[in-house]
């Protein structure tokens, strides 16, 4: 399998899913959350053959949450970053655990720290924090009585 440059990967997705676009600064592929499963299936099986879901993380931007998926191909040595914009009052997205095994724990981590709900996840529990932990610590709105804020000079 030959290495695919990012624009070729983008054009390949764009031909099948015209609803996607490219984010300006990062070059990440922004997709609507409804087409996540279809695009993920295409990326894994048909198109560039991404056999490794490297990382899932989230960014709290205040007005929206950004969910970032980093995919990598072990055979072709090329990668792509998918992004999903989520409204803060609708933090729900389909789970990819059935496609990539690594999504299981990665989605649990995002759920633990950001409180994003992955539907059809086999075992959506907290993974890093204690099970009785309240709230989601990496949200910007998070606060805790034990939290000691660093004085800004």
């Amino acid at each position: 399998m030959k290495v695919m440059p990012p624009n070729e990967i983008f054009e390949g997705i764009k031909a099948k899913f015209p609803e996607i676009r490219q984010e300006g600064l990062t070059g990440a592929v922004v997709i609507p959350k409804e087409s996540l499963l279809n695009i993920a299936r295409y990326l894994k099986d048909d198109g560039p053959g991404f056999d490794n879901l490297h990382c899932i993380t989230a960014i709290d931007k205040g007005e929206r949450f950004e969910l970032a998926y980093t995919l990598y191909s072990m055979r072709g040595h090329h990668g792509v970053t998918l992004k999903i914009y989520l409204a803060p009052d609708d933090l729900n997205v389909a789970s990819l655990a059935a496609l990539w095994k690594s999504a299981n724990w990665l989605e649990r981590e995002v759920y633990d720290l950001f409180g994003i709900d992955f539907s059809n996840h086999p075992d959506l529990r907290r993974i890093l924090n204690p099970y009785d932990w309240k709230e989601y610590p990496l949200r910007k709105s998070y606060s805790n009585p034990r939290f000691i804020t660093k004085p800004r000079l």
Partner: peptide
């Protein structure tokens, strides 16, 4: 981890 950390005992 004294400042700005949610998960560490002081």
């Amino acid at each position: 981890f004294y400042h700005d950390t949610y998960s560490v005992t002081k």
